[in-house]
Design a protein around this nucleic acid. Structure first.
Lengths: 148, 148
DNA sequence: GTAACTGCAAACCTTTTGCAGCTTG
DNA sequence: CAAGCTGCAAAAGGTTTGCAGTTAC
């Protein structure tokens, strides 16, 4: 179990067992997880942390900028992932729900256009691409173009 | 009160008072609304429809492709809007929560690139731009660049 | 007439909160 | 030691469901 002493201290957070465990799980997994998933993962490894603590912790991490929060359409649950401070988007498979990260972002130019055209002060954006991953394409084929 | 007899019939739905009312509200408003908002709006005009009926109805509309559903980050509530079958995105003001529609979409090209590069079969995408609208820019100024 | 729809109340599920006890710096 | 964390249990808030009665076709 790693210790994130300095990392937490820098944000005015105490370095506790739960926080280390939760940050670890998010780090290892490398993908967005729900609070429940984090909770279950910890339970499996007999390093149980109370579910409310998980919620409080990830929310705190979000507040301090250590973690990013996103709410997935469909099953409206919040998902949390380590903030690597890189700009990243996901391909979300509609079948297996896997989230595949893609580097790069085609939107910066567009944001500038919007600022000019609409006088809207852009601070960020969210961009998710839905479809079917390679694996699921083999299995399924009766999907149609949808509107998002 | 308009009647959407043919529209509903085409989707195998019965033409009922509640459905007309709900579709009407969404049409008039022209912007995404929560089930609650629809419910309240109807109550105000003494055309009360039960909240569960609102939920059942909008969800049905979504299923039939008449309405689009989106879940707003922050307060994770589902929002519903008429599906005009046009590709549209929103500027979401982080202060007043207003959603300003923008026509056009810079992403089609990018989707093609992804298909080639990742073998991912894209069926759609969701794109929301966060920031501050003209009005709120005047009031606030202490906002920082955030990660989404 | 029958299948579909609605209202009502209760259940559900994710997330939040109050409080008492325990840790960390 | 004081402030901050955690567990527990209970509440909150959005959404769903079972059922009995009503309505549309």
């Amino acid at each position: 179990m790693t210790s994130y002493k300095e990392l937490f201290a820098g944000k005015g957070l105490k370095n506790t067992k739960s926080r280390n465990l939760i940050y670890d799980i998010l780090n290892e997994t490398g993908l967005p997880m729900t609070a429940e998933q984090i909770f279950v993962r910890l339970k499996e490894t007999n390093k149980s942390v109370n579910l409310s603590t998980v919620y409080r912790t990830v929310e705190l991490f979000v507040e301090k900028g250590l973690v990013l929060k996103a709410i997935m359409a469909e099953d409206n649950k919040a998902m949390f992932e380590i903030n690597h401070h890189e700009h990243k988007h996901y391909l979300v498979c509609l079948n297996c729900k896997e989230m595949i990260p893609v580097a790069g972002c085609p939107l910066d130019e567009y944001e500038k256009v919007l600022i000019d055209r609409m006088g809207f002060d852009v601070t960020g954006h969210k961009f998710e691409i839905y479809g079917y991953c390679k694996n699921c394409q083999k299995l399924n084929s009766e999907h149609k173009k949808e509107d998002f």
